[in-house]
Simulated scan of single mutants.
Amino acid sequence: MMQDAGLIALDWGTSSLRAWLLDDDGTVRAARSEGWGIMHLPEGGYPTAYAAITEGWHDRARPAIACGMVGSRQGWVEAPYLPTPAGLAELAGSLVQVETGLGTLRLVPGLLEAGDPAFPDVMRGEETQAVGAMRRLGGDAILVLPGTHSKWARLAGHRLTGFETLMTGEVYALLSKHSILGRGVADAPEGSAELRDAAFARGVLAAQDRGALARLFSSRALMLTGAIEPSAVLDYLSGLLIGEELRLASPILQAGDPRVALTGDGRLCARYERAFEIAGYAAPERVDNSALQGLVDIAGAAGLIVPTQLQPSGA
C-alpha cells in the first residue's frame, strides 16, 4: 500500500554504508555515511548500524529500502540473485523483507548473468545503479560502472540484458600494495599533475598495444631506467589496467553503437573519461546519483511510495 511519507534509502556495501531521507516529492532532506560496510559493522551488528544511520528518521511510518552487499549471503538476510535479462519490474517484485525493530527494511536482489553456464557472473548493488541510469539514458546503452570490480552492462528496452565483470580495482590494489610494482613508490615525493597525467596516458596507450599483462612489468622497468618518476608509477599502472578494459571493449567502442555511459564515484568516472579520450574514443555520457535514483524507482515500482524523480537539490 502506498504511503505518503517519503522514503529511507540505503546503499549498503562491503566497506561503507550510505543513507538518505527523502521527502514525498523526491527531495533529499538528509544524507549520512559511515564506514559500516558488511565487513566492518559496529558492535551489535546490522540492527545497531541500521538504527544509528537512520536515527531520528522513524518519526513517521516511512518505508525503507536498501541495495548492495547487505542482501548477500554474508549480509543481513540473503536476497537471492535474479537471472538476466531483468529490469525494474523484476527487481521490485523480488524484494526481501527484514524486520529491523524499527519497521521493515526491504532488500533489492542482485543479478546473475548465466548466458554462458561455464562462466557465470554476478552483481549486487550495481543493478540498482543501472535502474537509476535507465531513467536518464532512456534507451539502449553500454553502462560502465567503475570500481573494485568494474561492470560493463548492456541495457536494452529498459532492461539489463547482460554484463561482464573486470576486477580492475582489486588488481590495482593488489599490485600496488603487495607486488614489486609498488615497491619504492609509496614514499616518493608527490609529482605534478601534468607528470602524473602523462604517465597515466602512457599506460592507457601501452595497454592498447599488447594488453596489460604483457606490459605490467614495464611499470617497474620504466621507473628503474628513469623514464617514469617514482611518484607517477601508480598512475601508469592505473592507466595500464583501465586501458586494458578499453582494449577488451574495443569491438563495441569502435562500432560506436550503442552509446556508452559511466556511473559511479565521480573521481573514478573522471579517470575513465580521460582514458576514453586518450584511447581516441568518443566521450561517454555521465549519469550521477544513479544508486539513489534506482532505489527511488524500485520503491515506486514496488508500491512503497508514489513513483517520483529526484529533485535537483538532492542531486
Rank of each mutant, 00 (worst) to 15 (best):
G138T: 03
T161A: 03
S72H: 08
G103H: 05
L143I: 11
Y172C: 12
G169F: 10
A221D: 09
S150E: 09
A291E: 09
P85H: 08
C67W: 11
P307G: 09
R271T: 14
P189F: 05
L240R: 10
L175C: 10
L102P: 01
G157I: 04
S15D: 08
S290Q: 05
Y236K: 04
L195W: 00
V296Q: 01
V233G: 08
A64G: 11
I305V: 15
P230A: 09
R202I: 00
A49S: 13
G243K: 00
V108T: 09
V108Q: 07
A66D: 05
P80M: 12
W152K: 05
L21D: 03
E113K: 00
L241P: 02
W152E: 07
A299L: 06
G37T: 03
G37Y: 02
M1K: 12
V171F: 11
A188I: 07
A206V: 03
T161D: 07
T84Q: 01
I38M: 14
A133N: 07
D288S: 15
R196W: 07
E277N: 02
L174F: 12
A86D: 03
L234R: 12
Q208M: 15
G103K: 03
G6Y: 06
Q293F: 00
G6V: 06
P120M: 08
M223Y: 03
G103Q: 04
V96A: 14
E34Q: 15
R29W: 09
E164W: 03
A212N: 10
T168A: 05
V122P: 01
A301H: 06
S15F: 09
D25E: 14
E127D: 07
R286N: 08
A86C: 02
G13L: 05
V144R: 00
A214H: 14
L155W: 01
G239A: 04
G280D: 08
T104A: 15
M69F: 07
T104D: 15
A255M: 07
M1Y: 11
